[in-house]
């Protein structure tokens, strides 16, 4: 299939979009910011019969706080997230992660829904969504279902989303008082590179001192999907997060990951780097906690 033979429809409402998804019988793909989709089209991997261009669906671009959490529309761009004062205050880890995505142009175009739909194990916003207990809302003409993020991904590039469904909302929990988060990324250079390893951490500190009341840690790029580091999380509360405590926790991280070797890095390096990034992230978080 040549690119010029692909059709494109730009629905004006979500209902129209869901109708098309339901009725169109040949291969159809959603097109949001296009920062991944266009590249894959160019490379010949994605040549659907129809592009469903949803970039114009303004109703799907929002960030607001509701009773059940912070709602983020799937067409929210990375720049929107970086600039959101609500997220800066109550989801700092997601803001950090969004900042690390690509260059300004990519952040202006790329959307959080697209990042989820692409389902790359190296996607930068996904570990942050893991530690914020994100719930993904999938809609179709038949109704709505909500999937916890840990159940959303099936493997690299694969999710539980059906062909007739689209992501219509992402709901995260707001960080609590004394909860601080950080996103650490190791790439082959400082910016504009795919992660070799990344990790999102969110810690609830118990008042003063270095005692942590609980926290969440999620790694990217070291397994077929983003994964939580549950053993490390348990250890967070068992000792003070001083240099020694941090080193102890981090030294466990390599046991929780199952990376592969590719053109960007070897599996052995990725394994060691999960430890290094967790250590660096915790050290930086504690410095911030101390300086607050």
């Amino acid at each position: 299939m040549m690119v010029s033979e692909i059709d494109m429809i730009s629905p004006e409402t979500m209902e129209e979009c869901l109708q098309i998804l339901n009725e169109y019988e040949q291969e159809v793909r959603l097109l949001a910011g296009g920062t991944d989709a266009v590249v894959r089209m160019k490379e010949g991997h994605w040549r659907p019969k129809l592009w469903l261009n949803i970039k114009g669906l303004r109703d799907l671009r929002f960030i607001c706080e509701e009773k059940d959490g912070i709602h983020i529309g799937p067409l929210t761009t990375h720049t929107d997230m970086v600039q959101s004062s609500l997220l800066q205050e109550k989801a700092d880890v997601l803001v950090h992660a969004a900042k690390e995505v690509g260059a300004t142009q990519i952040r202006n175009m790329g959307t959080i829904g697209g990042n989820l739909g692409t389902a790359s194990p190296a996607g930068d916003t996904i570990p942050a969504l893991f530690v914020l207990d994100a719930v993904i809302e999938l809609s179709s003409v038949n109704g709505i279902r909500r999937i916890p993020i840990e159940e959303f991904f099936v493997g690299p590039g694969k999710t539980v989303q059906h062909k007739s469904e689209m992501i219509t909302n992402i709901i995260i929990r707001p960080q609590e008082e004394n909860e601080i988060g950080i996103f650490e990324k190791l790439g082959p250079r400082k910016a504009q590179a795919i992660s070799i390893v990344n990790v999102a951490i969110s810690l609830k500190m118990s008042g003063d001192g270095w005692q942590c009341a609980g926290g969440k840690i999620a790694f990217g790029s070291v397994a077929p999907t983003v994964i939580r580091a549950r053993k490390c999380e348990v250890l967070l509360t068992l000792q003070e997060l001083n240099e020694e405590g941090i080193s102890n926790i981090a030294s466990l991280a390599w046991k929780e990951v199952a990376p592969i070797s590719d053109v960007r890095a070897s599996a052995a390096y990725r394994r060691d780097m999960s430890t290094a990034l967790l250590e660096r992230g915790l050290l930086r978080l504690m410095k911030r906690w101390e300086d607050r």
Partner: peptide
Amino acid sequence: HKTTNFSNYILPTVKD
């Protein structure tokens, strides 16, 4: 060639 384009050929950017 394992290197395919500027996604995996790492050039220094202004930040580097």
